[in-house]
Amino acid sequence: MNIEVTINGESRSIETEGHRRLLDVLREELGLVGTKEGCGEGECGACTVLMDGEPVNSCLVPVGQIQGTQLTTIEGMAGSDGLHIIQDTLVRYGGAQCGICTPGVALCAKWAVEKEPGASKERLRELLAGNICRCTGYQAIVDAVVAAQNSSESSHE
């Protein structure tokens, strides 16, 4: 089938079979290998991308369902002018160690901070709980997201 989709702000036309996993199409057809596979069953969140702004496990989305949507992968998270604030705080606070969960964590955190700007730490943990990290014990990620949250707040003032 033919799929028309906007990925990272760019219109794409993809010819593929609709039952395939979005994850495989991103990685194998489009070369967007920043999206990682950790489990293939929607448990680890490493393959998270934003679909019409919402976080989804790309291993669980049949690619036919992206028809007409807007997708953001990790490759499209930073603007041309450097890192997104969440990417920046993740690096500075030590929220990225081995890095394999990081693309998914970064995108989900971007969504969480935009969805609930004043979320408490506990609420942030709940919103991010679909992303498993085995390196950090999560503390540095939580600290990084809170720092990004605070800095976004101050930039709105």
């Binding site: 290998v33 920043g34 999206t35 992968t73 990790i74 490759e75 998270m77 930073a78 890192l83 990417q87 920046d88 993740l90 690096v91 500075r92 030590g94 990225a96 890095g99 990081t102 693309p103 970064a106």
Partner: peptide, 11 residues
Amino acid sequence: ARVDGAAKVRG
């Protein structure tokens, strides 16, 4: 800041 950090957060 981790020297490999930027590459990891950018994917």
